[in-house]
Structures are given as C-alpha cells and as structure tokens.
Design a protein around this nucleic acid. Sequence first.
DNA 1: CGCCAGATCTGCGAAATCCGTGAACTTCGA
DNA 2: TCGAAGTTCACGGATTTCGCAGATCTGGCG
Lengths: 168, 168
Amino acid sequence: MRDVASRSADPKGSRNGNGAPQLDAVSLAIIEQLQQDGRRPYAAIGKAVGLSEAAVRQRVQKLLDQGVMQIVAVTDPLTVGFRRQAMVGINAEGDLDPVANALTAMPEVEYVVMTAGSFDLLAEVVCEDDDQLLDVINKRIRAIPGVRSTESFVYLKLKKQTYMWGTR
Amino acid sequence: MRDVASRSADPKGSRNGNGAPQLDAVSLAIIEQLQQDGRRPYAAIGKAVGLSEAAVRQRVQKLLDQGVMQIVAVTDPLTVGFRRQAMVGINAEGDLDPVANALTAMPEVEYVVMTAGSFDLLAEVVCEDDDQLLDVINKRIRAIPGVRSTESFVYLKLKKQTYMWGTR
DNA sequence: CGCCAGATCTGCGAAATCCGTGAACTTCGA
DNA sequence: TCGAAGTTCACGGATTTCGCAGATCTGGCG
C-alpha cells in the first residue's frame, strides 16, 4: 500500500513564490479525505493514502499549524438565522489596502477580495434582516474613507456552494 | 452547568417557511463549538453547552443528516494549486434556473447565486491557470443557452474568508 | 563516498473518545 | 389520564487519539 506517491518529496518545508507551503501528493490526498469528512479517523485516512496513523496525524497537525487548511463546521446561513445576503462591488480611490482592511474588520462581512475589472473590491455581506443589511451597506461601507461608490447584488437564491477544491 | 438554554424547545423537528429546520440555542451553541474546531470531542462540546456526550453526538449527527451543517476541511485555493480565480457576473434571458443549473454542473464553478441588481447571476470560478480560466469563462459559460453577456472580475488578492456564521 | 543534521515515518502502550443500547424523562395530543 | 414520540442520560466495549522513542529517508558537505 504505497500507492499515492512513491515516497518522494518534501511534505512541507519549501515554499513557492507566494509564501505558500508546497504540498506533495500525499498531503493533497489527506486533504481530499478530510474534505469528504472532517472527522474521519486518522487510521482510515492512513489506509486510504498509504501512511501510518501517526504519520497522518503529524501531517494534519502541520497543515493546520501552517494554515493550509482548517477543519470547521460550515452551515447554511438561512438555517442559522441570516436571511439577507448580498455581494457588494466597491470602487475606491488611492490605496485599496486600508479600504480592504476596514471591510475585513466588519463582522457582517464574510468575504473580501481585491479584483481586476470594473470593481476594485468585492465584499460579501451576511445579515439577519433588511435593516441590518441596509445599515451595513449604506452607512458603514460607504463611510469607509476612500470609498467612491458601491453597487449591491442582493442574493435571491443560493444555488451552489462547495468546499471541494482539489477533489475533482 | 445548564446554562445555554434551560431545557426548552424542539432541537429539530419544526421547520420554518423556507423548509429549513429551526434550531434552538443549544444546537446553535454546538455549531459554534464546531466552527472553532471541527474535531473537538463531543465530551468537550457537551461541557461547553451543558449536555451529555451522547446527547451532543446525536444532535451533531442529526444536524449533519439534515444538511444544516457539514464538517469539512477548507483550504487556501492558492496552496492547493488553483492560482486563478474570478467572479463572473452574468445576464441571461428567460428562465434563470436552467442557466444556474448548467453553471452548478461545472466543477470549476465553486459558487452560484441568483441576485437582484445589474447581474442576474454571480458565479465564482476556480482554475489552475489563465488558460483554464479563459476556457471556462469565454467558451463554456458563454455557451450556455440563454446567457446574454458576462463580466469577469479576476481575483488579485483574497483578503478575508471566514466560516463563522453565527459566531459573533 | 561517507557522515551528519534535520525531518519524516513507524510501532506501541496508555488514556481518551467514540458508539450502540436500553431505560428514564419531557412534551403533546387523544 | 394515558400513550406515543422525541430527547437525554448512563454505561461498557470497541476504536481512536496521543505522546514518544527508534528506525528510515533526504540533502548538504568535506
């Protein structure tokens, strides 16, 4: 059972240009196992990827410590009481980093990304009701220094949301 | 240690208008625990929310079965080898459902949502390189029947991504 | 080529956790 | 009041996790 990668390279150490740890095939296989079930026992994972239980445990711990992955419960926002969501496209002037940081600091903002295109930033907002959504978008986000304009896309229906990167 | 909710109501059964199971305070507290660490032992969770280990186990199993939450490993796409991402705004004619379903069927599309605003749909695309991204956006998405136009926002830098709904 | 240093893997007890089960308890409606 | 359904608790055995020491592998250097 030594199948995934015949004991080749560097499960963690080296980092590519982005500062991101480079993953070998075995770690990738471990991640795939945990993407299917975050609570799968180390022994079962080891059997699947061809490693001992202890080795899997060490690799998982390292991946967590490095921040490569996290094992968490993800929920359907609607079920947990958040009934209004929106994507907000933002245009700003000057350095975008302070603006992005201000967005990041807001707990209602789930997702912030700098983009190329007709928006400088995209931010996903998760709220409990319309009042809160209005407050966040029209008061708090527009009040951030440097923000020139915003455009909102209120979610009508979420059709797909996966966490299966690498499991294709 | 009977703090979160004094043994009140309906851990699952009833469903609100959306068909989503209604959660009580205890289940919410359990979810928060698992959002912090998806592998936290049931006994530790029970101590935190005021329930026995077995009760926590059964509630977690039920939440998973109902699809209210899933416990999974989430990764940084860059680390796992996906170096190009984009949000794609889409305008279409006629019924949006077939278009959304076509997007959902594409493995490179991570996220599909129907929106109100100047786009009918938003789709997040995760690719390994520019070639694949171009192929997905300009060939596959634009080829979907009903799609009238698209606008792409290539990700330059991901600033925030959390999974802490309900943990505020 | 040989050796060292660092990192990774394995094997193995001990402790903790997971899991199924049956009984007690609560709620709700007949 | 009684019964059905749903939840919780207690408990014992199987499984898993955890920490550690020794074996193995990799890469650099004289």
